[in-house]
Nucleic acid binder design. Structure first.
Lengths: 169, 169
DNA sequence: GAGCATTCCGACCGATCGGGTCGGCATAAC
DNA sequence: GTTATGCCGACCCGATCGGTCGGAATGCTC
């Protein structure tokens, strides 16, 4: 399993919030019922989203949550990172995004003299595939998909020649 | 974590076998020492590779393992499937490759009337990214990478416009 | 200000599974 | 028959996932 239910539930929560439209705050209880998810668990998940700045909360009666940005500006790679932490193909894989070089520290390979294990190439390619898919998907895409069923390939910003599949409901 | 150590160790085992060149059978003990991996665990892993037809074994003294195909003909998506089983972004994701339609069965969503959750789009894209990266990488690529450090983008068969990153050791 | 709805937060907890070990048997070379 | 190797089932342990529970803080509403 690549992602945990935290990611799944968190994304669905955001989709639900996005569909609400941004008027009054939406109570978590309402989301839990609509999405059929355990409320107590959602509380912990939404806390992650709040700390990461995707939602803001108002407490007390009639309180709830609202998105802080427009859905088009919420990229899934950020969301998933907030919910599940950095995604790594393997435990030995370190996503050193700062330097754009992904480190692979072989757990059982102490002597660094001999070049890196061949798996580094594989994990790096896979990692790239996942990250690209996440970066190219925004919350707005998911909302449109849930509404319409078919999603055109998003709002530009995508490098030419890089194709994501069109999916039908 | 996307992959388990089974996948990691299994791939490294294949790389090691590929580098051996296919003369005499290679004993697992030798591989375990070279790659610095636990022998007992490797035994269980190589069994998966044997059942899947990637290696053949000869028993008894001076026995060991050999690749059954040329490294260029061993695609990583097949290998990983044999080692880790089908890769799924989420527990609710079913890789129905036969029909080319990936089913997403929301665990908490019993009523199928309302369209699929928006996460289906996301998981499908991610799944596609992973599968493509695996399909486009052969054992030969990994061997070349481990030897040379830089890998040109493989032996064709790759759709135009789809780019994998070049990685340096 | 009493009550209620809601967010917030830490503690706890069971099941599953990843990652391995162990012991023993089967088989074949020497 | 001894030794090296493949083969295989049983077991085991720690981590983590996927929650639950109880309660405190906060703020509308009447």
């Amino acid at each position: 399993m690549i992602f945990t239910t935290k990611a799944e539930y968190g994304v669905r929560l955001l989709v639900d919030l996005g569909q609400a439209g941004g008027g009054d705050p939406v109570a978590l209880k309402a989301i839990a019922e609509r999405e059929n998810l355990p409320l107590a668990y959602l509380e912990r998940i939404v806390a992650l989203l709040r700390k990461a700045g995707f939602v803001e909360s108002t407490r007390g009666a009639r309180g709830g949550y609202l998105l802080t940005r427009r859905p088009e500006d919420i990229r899934m790679d950020e969301v998933i990172a907030a919910l599940d932490g950095p995604i790594a193909p393997m435990s030995c894989f370190i996503d050193d995004s700062a330097t754009e070089a992904h480190k692979v520290v072989c757990s059982h390979h102490v002597d660094d003299e001999t070049g890196p294990c061949g798996t580094k190439l594989l994990w790096t390619r896979v990692h790239g595939g996942v990250v690209r898919a996440l970066q190219q998907t925004t919350l707005a895409d998911l909302i449109a998909f849930e509404r319409g069923g078919v999603v055109a390939l998003g709002a530009g910003r995508r490098p030419a020649g890089d194709v994501l599949p069109v999916i039908t409901a």
